[in-house]
Amino acid sequence: MINILIVEDEVPAQKNLQRLIEEYVVDGQVVGCTGSIESTCRFLSERGGEVDLILLDIELSDGKSFEIFNRIKITARVIVTTAFDNYAIKAFKIHSVDYLLKPIEPRELVAAVELVRRDMSSDGHIDKILEILSPREYKQRFTVKIGDKIVIVDTEQIAYFYSEEKVTFLVTKQDRRYIVDFSLDMVGEMVNPRQFFRLSRGCVASVGAIKSVTKHLNGRLKVNLQPATSEEIFVSRTRTPEFMLWLES
Results as ranks from 00 to 15, higher is better:
residue 209 A to H: 06
residue 167 V to N: 04
residue 18 Q to H: 06
residue 110 V to I: 13
residue 228 A to S: 14
residue 83 A to P: 12
residue 177 R to H: 10
residue 167 V to S: 06
residue 62 D to Y: 01
residue 58 I to S: 06
residue 52 D to L: 02
residue 236 S to I: 05
residue 161 F to V: 06
residue 63 G to E: 10
residue 136 R to H: 15
residue 111 A to F: 10
residue 205 A to H: 01
residue 233 I to L: 09
residue 210 I to H: 04
residue 170 L to E: 02
residue 202 G to H: 08
residue 186 M to K: 15
residue 221 L to Q: 01
residue 5 L to C: 05
residue 173 K to N: 14
residue 212 S to G: 03
residue 149 K to F: 12
residue 238 T to M: 14
residue 181 D to L: 13
residue 95 H to C: 11
residue 170 L to W: 04
residue 199 L to F: 04
residue 98 D to P: 05
residue 135 P to Y: 08
residue 97 V to L: 00
residue 81 T to Q: 07
residue 105 E to A: 15
residue 67 E to F: 09
residue 9 D to G: 00
residue 207 V to F: 11
residue 39 S to A: 14
residue 167 V to E: 05
residue 28 G to R: 07
residue 121 S to T: 13
residue 61 S to C: 13
residue 195 Q to M: 14
residue 49 G to A: 10
residue 146 I to M: 15
residue 212 S to F: 01
residue 15 K to Y: 08
residue 45 S to F: 06
residue 25 V to Q: 00
residue 29 Q to F: 11
residue 191 V to Q: 04
residue 137 E to G: 11
residue 42 R to W: 09
residue 202 G to I: 04
residue 242 E to T: 15
residue 52 D to T: 06
residue 187 V to E: 02
residue 181 D to I: 08
residue 177 R to F: 06
residue 173 K to T: 11
residue 44 L to I: 10
residue 249 S to Y: 11
residue 68 I to S: 07
residue 166 K to M: 05
residue 223 V to F: 07
residue 88 A to M: 14
residue 21 I to Y: 01
residue 42 R to D: 14
residue 150 I to F: 12
residue 167 V to P: 00
residue 247 L to A: 08
residue 128 K to F: 09
residue 179 I to G: 11
residue 114 E to V: 02
residue 162 Y to M: 04
residue 199 L to Q: 05
residue 197 F to H: 06
residue 161 F to M: 00
residue 180 V to L: 08
residue 15 K to E: 09
residue 211 K to T: 12
residue 102 K to N: 02
residue 73 K to T: 12
residue 118 R to F: 12
residue 39 S to P: 03
residue 98 D to V: 03
residue 202 G to F: 08
residue 56 L to Q: 08
residue 184 L to S: 00
residue 182 F to Y: 13
residue 209 A to R: 04
residue 198 R to W: 01
residue 248 E to N: 14
residue 90 K to C: 08
residue 145 K to S: 11
residue 220 R to Q: 12
residue 13 A to E: 00
residue 209 A to T: 09
residue 231 E to T: 12
residue 33 C to V: 13
residue 236 S to W: 11
residue 211 K to E: 14
residue 206 S to M: 06
residue 80 V to K: 00
residue 81 T to D: 04
residue 208 G to Q: 12
residue 96 S to G: 07
residue 46 E to S: 09
residue 183 S to Q: 07
residue 61 S to D: 11
residue 14 Q to L: 01
residue 81 T to A: 09
residue 62 D to I: 02
residue 102 K to S: 05
residue 171 V to S: 10
residue 172 T to C: 07
residue 22 E to K: 15
residue 78 V to Y: 03
residue 170 L to Y: 03
residue 57 D to F: 02
residue 69 F to Q: 05
residue 140 Q to F: 09
residue 248 E to V: 14
residue 182 F to R: 10
residue 204 V to C: 07
residue 17 L to S: 03
